[in-house]
Amino acid sequence: MTPLSQLLPGQFGKLASLNPERGVDQRLMALGLLPGMVLKLVRKAPLGDPLAIEFGGQVVSLRLSEAESLIVDVAADCPIQRPQATS
């Protein structure tokens, strides 16, 4: 279990938990980022913040401070190539 922000660019992880009390997490859930979903840290912005993550076929940017409640499981059996597809 690691915080999302500690993934390396290009690394996949399976979302283990988030904090539904937070506005950011609510927004991400509306976009389909729910526990169990595979995501990929695509890259960090040139200044180190924000992050770009990919899940469900979309790329979304979020700030480090906003990503802190997202915990991912790196050891989980993630697909090597693509995060879980749209359907």
């Binding site: 950011v24 927004r27 979304v60 940017s61 979020l62 906003e66």
Partner: peptide, 8 residues
């Protein structure tokens, strides 16, 4: 303020 969640 709103979270800065932005679709690329």
């Amino acid at each position: 303020p709103q979270p800065f969640v932005l679709e690329l």
